[in-house]
Every structure is written in C-alpha cells, then in structure tokens.
C-alpha cells in the first residue's frame, strides 16, 4: 500500500522533472542555432521559415520582446479588471454580506474559475471583440477585430475568482479581535476595514494578485482566440498582439521538423514562461506563508 502511494508521488515528481529537463535541453539546442542575445533583445518575431532552404526568408527572426510585451499588456489589462472587481467583492463578502448572501455569492464567483477557458475564448471572439470594434468605430477609433483589450477584459473576468477568493480568505483570517479593537475605539465600519483590516490582510491580498497574474501570463486559449497572431510590438490595447503562449501553440501545431529553429523556439518560450510564472508563484507563496505566521 505504502509502495503504491510512494509510486504515485514519485511519478508526479518524475514527470515534472522530465518536463523541465526536456525544456532545458531543447532550449539549449535552440540557443545553438539562435543566440541568446537575439532571443532576449531582438524586437522582431518572425519565425515563419521557408519550406525549402533556398527560398527567401530561410531563417526566421526570433526576438521574444514583442511576445513578452504582448503577454504583459494583456495580463495588465486582465489585472486591471480582476484586481478591483475581485477586491471589492472580497471586501463585500468578508465584511458586509450576511451569511446567506455569502453562501450564494462565493460559490457563484468561484464558478467563474470552473468555466472552460475555450468558452471564455469564444465569448471574447464572438461577443466582446465585435462589441469593442463597433464601439470603437462609433467613437472614431480603429479597433482591430482581434485586440489585446478584448482578450484582456475576458481574461480579467476569468481571473476574478483567483483574486476574490484569496483576498476573501486573507480578510477572513484577520483576527476578529483586531476588528473589534478598531470598532471599540469608535471607528466606523469603513474606517476599520480601510485602516486596520485591509492593511493586516495586505500580504494575503498581494499573494492573490500574484497568483492571478501568473494565471493570466500562462493563459493560452483566450489569447489564441481573441488576441491574434501578429507579433506587433505595441502597447496600444486596441491592436492585435500575440503572446508567448499563443506563439508556442502556433509553432507546434501542424507538421513540424523537430530540429528546426522554429520548433525549438517553442521550447525556449516555454522555459521562459515557466521561469516567469515559477518566480511569481514562489513570491506569492512566500508572501502568503509569511502572513499566515503572523497570526498563528
């Protein structure tokens, strides 16, 4: 029995190690074809190599900067949506809602996390994107039918529960004695929340925001469907941008040679993404853990 349990955990660990190693080795091979400086600093991404080596554009350009910018742009939009909505709903749930409302609203919010991302994707493409395009046309702006804004907004809605759930937990974990202490001094409820409870819960709330950010950065399906493929280096949310995850998908779908720079680039991007989200997660967990210790 114990052996079976041990094997179970061993398999999980081995698979993780295997994935990381494959990323590292393939990235190493990629970097033998494309120099690291080009990958990190070249502002152009054009991996479309020709089918035959004697054609024009035989070697692609692999600068990850437009992808990173696109990823950050969309994630920033997503957080700009998820952070206020998530925090407000968490504060409402933790401090104002009665237990009946809470019992309905909290699971409903968390249901948002259970919706398949592909559903969010076609929501973005079929409803939000046309809406933005028509709205933009009405306001005299040219909004691309695939835009960072459409993808970011929908991704923001998707990440609301990550923010609200963690923030709610953090607010609930603030000892009642602190809240009562503030109220007993004649604070209004809102003063107690703003000046005592939120500052005390801030590490937990930050942890939740970082988790939401790492979720947004790693999100694929919504951006594949709604953000576009064009590797524009822009900060304009109305234009089509592409992200690291979208490019990995495009690089690896269809028939590929497994030793071309194009295919190997996907592994390098994967490793980059892995490192970024790993760092965010480590920071988030560290913050959450630190604040837990503060009260226990």
């Amino acid at each position: 029995m114990v052996a079976a349990l041990f094997t179970g955990s061993l398999v999980a660990i081995l698979v993780t190690v295997g994935i990381v190693l494959s990323l590292v080795f393939e990235t190493f091979r990629f970097l033998q074809i494309v120099p690291l400086t080009e990958f990190l600093f070249n502002p152009q991404w054009s991996p479309q190599t020709a089918i035959r080596t004697d054609q024009v554009g035989a070697s692609g350009v692999f600068g990850a900067i437009p992808l990173i910018t696109g990823t950050l742009l969309i994630s920033a939009i997503a957080l700009a949506v998820a952070a206020p909505i998530g925090l407000f709903s968490a504060i409402y749930l933790a401090e104002y809602a009665n237990s009946k409302t809470r019992a309905v609203v909290k699971p409903t919010l968390e249901l948002l996390a259970g919706i398949p991302t592909v559903v969010y994707g076609f929501f973005a493409v079929l409803i939000i994107a046309p809406l933005l395009r028509d709205g933009g046309a009405w306001a005299g702006l040219s909004v691309s039918s695939e835009s960072a804004l459409a993808a970011g907004l929908v991704m923001g809605i998707m990440t609301i529960p990550f923010v609200s759930s963690t923030a709610d937990d953090a607010l609930i974990a603030v000892p009642l004695s602190l809240k009562e202490g503030a109220l007993a001094l004649g604070s209004t409820r809102s003063e107690a929340i703003r000046q005592i409870i939120i500052p005390a819960a801030l590490p937990g709330i930050t942890g939740g925001l970082l988790l939401a950010a790492s979720r947004a950065i790693g999100e694929t399906m919504i951006v594949v469907m709604a953000a576009g493929l064009a590797a524009n280096l822009t900060l304009n949310p109305l234009e089509a941008v592409t992200t690291v995850t979208v490019q990995i998908v495009t690089l690896l779908t269809g028939d590929q040679e497994f030793d071309s720079a194009k295919t190997l680039a996907a592994f390098a991007l994967g490793l980059l993404l892995f490192i970024v989200t790993l760092i965010l997660n480590v920071i988030a967990q560290h913050i959450v853990k630190k604040y837990r210790e503060q009260y226990d």
Binding site: E180, G181, A182, A184, I196, P199
Partner: peptide, 20 residues
C-alpha cells in the same frame, strides 16, 4: 454608535495591538 464607543472605551481579553 461611533460616538458612543468614543465615550465608552474597551480593553479586550487578549491584547490586540494593531499591526502598526
């Protein structure tokens, strides 16, 4: 009630200084 609690202070069972 805010004014009331300013007139009637309270000290609790477990010391509860604010994290300030």
């Amino acid at each position: 009630v805010v004014e009331l609690r300013a007139r009637i202070g309270m000290v609790f069972q477990k010391p509860n200084p604010f994290p300030k």
